[in-house]
Design a protein around this nucleic acid. Structure first.
Lengths: 141, 141
DNA sequence: TGCTCTAGTTACCTTATGGTGACCAAGTTT
DNA sequence: AAACTTGGTCACCATAAGGTAACTAGAGCA
């Protein structure tokens, strides 16, 4: 059996059809790819920072100006995190004053593709979701 | 100009090409679809719970057994959240003892599609990411 | 000398998130 | 009557996440 989403692997295992049997257990430890990847980009700033580098590299203060509301501390922290994950590279140019350029790596560009699918969906559906929230809140007031 | 990801809309605005001009600002307020949607499912349990309902509806304690490590409190909270977003429906059957069935809504099933893209990517690339982390940690020890 | 730039770091504080364990109600079984 | 079932709620606590503001380095410029 193949679901409407096609082949379906999670935790490195082909789980196509296993959900249907109600036997599938979803692990939530360090080896779980879902948490391992999604937890890192599910924070307040990572996705915005990654998308700010989609078309070309950019430097620290320029990113800071473009990602509205991010503090210096959080931009540093977010950039370190996405650099550690391998999504972004950091290049220091020994100019005066120092110039530090951040760019998506190949891996980062690969990640942008599924991420873009999610972001587009969010963009197309967020008014629907808002009215769902309102309806829920009215029903549970 | 169209990016390699095709048309690109964020915040309801066609931003294709705007990134390239370095003019694009990423808002992070209540009207930002990215945060509005991603922040809700970027928590510790939502994605796992949503995927546990992909193939058929399931009831509270069965989900609890299948989503490893989730506490009763967090399952309740997560289910209320995804219900409020409109991704999941909650049906009480007046049996004895009470049976409560959770199922993906049409909207929830729509969300699963881009989410599945992300989860698959995570599954295929998490070993790469792990070695990126190790390399980063070695370089910055 | 003092002020400017970029790209940070650090200390401190507040809020958000999530975990534990006790408790609850309605009804059925022993 | 006591215990067990499902599907929760509630109070309490610990930690994580994130914001603010001050401070730093290295070099150029007035």
């Amino acid at each position: 059996m193949v679901t409407k989403f096609g082949r379906f692997t999670v935790n490195g295992e082909d789980m196509t059809g296993k959900l249907a049997s109600q036997k599938r257990v979803f692990h939530n430890n360090d080896d779980c790819p879902i948490r391992n990847v999604v937890a890192q980009i599910g924070d307040r700033w990572s996705i915005l920072v990654l998308f700010s580098l989609v078309d070309e590299p950019d430097r620290f203060n320029s990113i800071k100006r473009r990602v509205e509301g991010i503090s210096q501390k959080m931009l540093t922290q977010t950039l370190r995190d996405v650099e550690r994950e391998g999504y972004v590279s950091r290049t220091v140019y020994p100019e005066v004053p120092a110039r530090v350029e951040y760019a998506l790596t190949d891996l980062g560009r690969e990640l942008i593709k599924p991420l873009y699918g999610l972001v587009s969906w969010a963009d197309q559906n967020h008014t629907t979701i808002k009215s769902c929230r309102d309806a829920y809140d009215r029903a549970n007031a």
